[in-house]
Each structure stands twice: as C-alpha cells, then as structure tokens.
Design a protein around this nucleic acid. Structure first.
Length: 454
RNA sequence: GUGGUUGUAGCUCAGUUGGUUAGAGCAUUAGAUUGUGGUUCUAAGGGUCGCCGGUUCGAGCCCGGUCUUCCACCCCA
C-alpha cells in the first residue's frame, strides 16, 4: 500500500459539514461589509519579497513563508555564501516571492498600484487566506482566512465609529457576545513622552500589553530588564492602575498626559469615538483598555481588538488606523483605518458555543424518492419546476431501496421527501412526506410548490 | 525560534513486568424489512500500532532519531 498521505503542519481540510458552517460565517461578514458600502477586491496569494519584508518587524519577517525560486535557484551562490549568509540574506538571494502574511500590506500595495483607477475615500473588503510560519496551537493555524474591511484616503474619525458599529453588527448577527477593546497609539506615545522614554515606546507597549496575563510585578520586571529606570517605572504605575468607567479613565488621563500634545490628541480621538458610540446602543461592550498595544508596528492612531466573552481563544478581530502605510510604496499622505475578522477563530468560538442556526446544515428542501426509471423521469420534470421557483431540490440519482433513499434525506437534514411510485405516476401526484413529523399526503405539483414556498 | 507534551481502525479510547492471530463503542456497508427514514437485532469490511533505526529468541510496550498533535514562551487572527 502507498504511504499514508498527509497535509502540512498547521493546515486543514474541510469536509462539507464544516464548509457550510464556514460559509455561513463568511456570508454573514460579507453581507455586513456590503451593507456598509465596502467593495470587494482580491490580490494574489503571493507577493514579491520586497513588498512583504520589513513591514511586520523582525519577528514578522521570520514568520513569512518564502517561495523558493523555480529553476536553478542556487546558481550564482558560492558554497561560502551558502554557509555564511544569514538565513534572511540567503532567503533574499533564492526567493523573490512569498505568501501573503496579512491582507493590509498587500492592500496598501494595491492602492498605490491602482491609485488612478480608484476614487478616494476608498472602502474595500477582502476575504482571503493568509499564511504564517508560526508554530500552530489552538486557534492558531499556518493557513487561515482574514476578512478585512479598510477605508483609505479619509482622516475622519467617522470611519472609526463606523468600524466599531460594523464589528458590533457582525457579532450580534452571529450571536457571539463580545467585548470591543479600544485604545490609541497616540495615548501610548503620550505616556512614553510623559515618563521621558519616547524612544522605548515599543518595549513599553509590549510589556504593558501583558498586564492582564502576567500581573503588574512581572510587567515591571520586564520593563526594568529592558533597561528602563526604576524611577521611570514608578511614574508608570498610576497609569497601569487606572480603573473605572471609560469616562473616568479618560478624565484621569487628561491630567496625567497634560504636558503631551500627542497624548491629548489621542484622548480627544477616543472621546469622539466613545461619545458617538454611546448614542448607538450597541449590544457589544466597548471598553477603553490602555494595555491594548497590538504588535503590528504600522498602527498610528486608534486600535481595536475584539474578544469573545464566553470562549477563551485570543482576539477574534482586530484593527486600527495607520497613517502612512502607502508611503512605503511611494504614495505618501494617504491615511487608512481598517478591521480584520479572524474567521477561523470565529468558527472555533461558534463551534464551542454550538451557536449555528439550524438551516446551516440543510442542503435541499425536498428530495425525490423514486421506485423506477419512469418515476425518475417524472421527478426530473417536477424538480425542474420546483427549482425554477428558487427552491433547492434534489433527486436521488439511483434506483435504490426506499430505506436507502430515505436515509439519504435524513442524513442531510432534508425536511421533505417526495415519493413517486406507480400509483403516483398514474394519478399525477406526489406523496409529500414531512421528515420531521412523519406525516404525508398526496398532492399535485402545483400544491407541492405552493406548500414548499410557504 | 525555545521548553514540554501527544500518536493504536474514519472518530473516541482499551491493550497486564516485553510473549501466539492487537480489542471495544460509535461511524461505514449489507441483511432482518420487494411502498417509508431516525429505534432495535444480525453480520461484514476496515490496523505495516505515526515513520526510520536500535536492543531482544521475541517490541504496540524498552532506547535513539524524525514527523505530527496539543500546551507554555515569543508573537498573533
């Protein structure tokens, strides 16, 4: 026998039962995106190395899947070079393409390349897989889908407000209780400025990001490991210990960040977003979380992260404002803000909550069960007229035992079965059986259609 | 990338200090039932015990390597 087949680490197959659930998630997200006026685009699975490298920080570069050049990729590399070069330097020599790591950077590239074909402000959505050479864990895969909605070419905070609204719409439609955490990079910058460590802002945010997880002592320890003076860490304490409602937190921040222009700007932005949201009676909880940092280093303004309240799985959605992402590709002055839904994690959450609507597993509404070939031919005609009314209909393709045909309907959750035998054929009727109640009655095709349309 | 963990039928798992032909439940297929599914009963198919090597008269069990799974870190959807 041949060797057992396998698929690469961190990838998955999806059987029909899983696909219909996944499709339900994608369709829900897509319908909301469309509802808010976003337009679809797609970009290639692979980008040039140049486009991707250096956009996600040093760690990110390592997690990008590189594609080996085709043909004689090792030509022009000496043995010395091969042994001595760092793996990234070597990668640049033998790879000119890589798999996309997210949808935001390819989108920035897209905007620059198509700047004369699109009108700003440009709202796009994109639902495609991305790849990361991460070590897999629960809710962490090497191939997974992102569902992104971004708007570029507008500085207005209205966009941020609308994104929060959209996040709320998606999760309430899916029936997932969530907490939307918001923060602002400018506030984080302000904090760094106030304590006099502006150049260490990355280290500081990475450290305080872990507050909830490891506790304040460990955060302080990490800060001091990173070479931040104890007196400076002491200045940070009142910020880490902030609590109360969003209004109260903002009020306290006002005084702490008094001397920082950026900081005050960040506060004003958050205030604008929060006041507007408060008028909208969202079902999700919105919370200002100063420990929210988000690793991607291209965010410059508001940042968002969404967590499920009932399932622990990390964030299921995240995003923020990036002021100059297209600048790297030669188009400065275009601000963007966007949000990304992690469909695979949302799937895991729904799976754990068992919160799928019943019709997700339904294929056809009616199955024709026939006893012989003449009956089948009649069923094909009936099926055609039922389908013409937009009702999903299936005809069992083989002349098989009734039990087998009924079981087919049962396994697939088909709610009605139309039985056709000699008697029905003669009287031009269908024995319409309800598979849930078990009752049945003889009807003609018009009655049958009318019944199914109800 | 670092440290740990897991692997026996499609799935969930048994398998005695190393000892004949590796088991169960569920699932699948067929029959009981030639015009009626879910329940029940009967039977069948399905395993190079993740893979490669070693120790041994003998390995599912012991040892080494490798791959995979899951977990923590890193980072993140």
């Amino acid at each position: 026998m041949a060797q057992k087949p396998s698929i690469p680490k961190g990838t998955r197959d999806f059987i029909p039962a899983e696909m219909s659930k996944r499709k339900y998630i994608f369709d829900t997200i897509q319908s909301i995106f469309t509802l808010y006026g976003y337009l679809p685009i797609e970009t290639p699975a692979m980008e040039t190395m140049q486009t991707l490298m250096g956009k996600y920080g040093e760690e990110g570069d390592k997690l990008i899947f590189k594609i080996l050049n085709s043909g004689e990729f090792n030509q022009g590399i000496s043995a010395d070079e091969y042994i001595q070069a760092s793996s990234t330097a070597l990668a640049h020599k033998i790879c000119e393409k890589a798999l996309r790591y997210d949808l935001t950077v390819p989108f920035a590239r897209f905007v620059v390349m198509h700047q004369n074909e699109i009108q700003f402000p440009f709202k796009r959505y994109q639902i495609q897989p991305v790849w990361r050479a991460d070590r897999p864990q629960k809710g962490r895969y090497r191939e997974f889908y992102q569902c992104d909605a971004d708007i570029v070419g507008s500085n207005s905070l209205v966009n941020e407000v609308e994104l929060v609204q959209m996040v709320d719409a998606v999760f309430s439609k899916l029936g997932i209780r969530v907490c939307i955490k918001i923060n602002n990079r400018k506030i984080l910058a302000g904090i760094a400025e106030v304590i006099g460590e502006s150049d260490k802002i990355i280290d500081i945010t990475v450290a305080i990001d872990k507050l909830e997880k490891v506790g304040i002592e460990n955060v302080n320890k990490e800060l001091s490991d990173k070479g931040i003076a104890d007196s400076t860490i002491a200045k940070l304490q009142p910020i880490l210990e902030l609590h109360g409602t969003t209004e109260q937190k903002l009020q306290q921040l006002q005084t702490i960040l008094q001397s920082s222009e950026v900081g005050k700007q960040g506060i004003a932005e958050i205030e604008y977003i929060c006041t507007n949201i408060s008028h909208m009676s969202l079902s999700a909880e919105v919370e200002l979380d100063l420990t929210l940092a988000r690793g991607l280093n291209y965010y410059t303004g508001a940042i968002f992260e969404v967590k499920s309240k009932d399932v622990q799985i990390g964030s299921i959605c995240g995003g923020g404002r990036y002021d100059n992402l297209t600048g790297i590709f030669g188009l400065p002055g275009v601000s963007g803000v966007g949000i990304s839904f992690g469909a695979d994690r949302i799937y895991d959450v729904l799976q754990q909550l068992d919160a799928y609507p019943a019709q997700v597993n339904q294929t056809a509404k009616i199955l024709f069960v026939c006893f012989g070939e003449p009956e089948q031919q009649q069923a094909l005609l009936y099926a055609q007229s039922i389908r013409s009314k937009g009702i999903a209909c299936d005809v069992y393709p083989d002349v098989a035992k009734m039990k087998k045909q009924m079981q087919y309907a049962n396994d697939r959750g088909i709610p009605y079965v139309g039985i056709i035998g000699e008697t029905e054929l003669e009287s031009h009727t269908i024995m319409l059986k309800n598979m849930i109640t078990g009752t049945q009655e003889a009807v003609n095709i018009e009655q049958c259609i009318a019944f199914l349309q109800k």
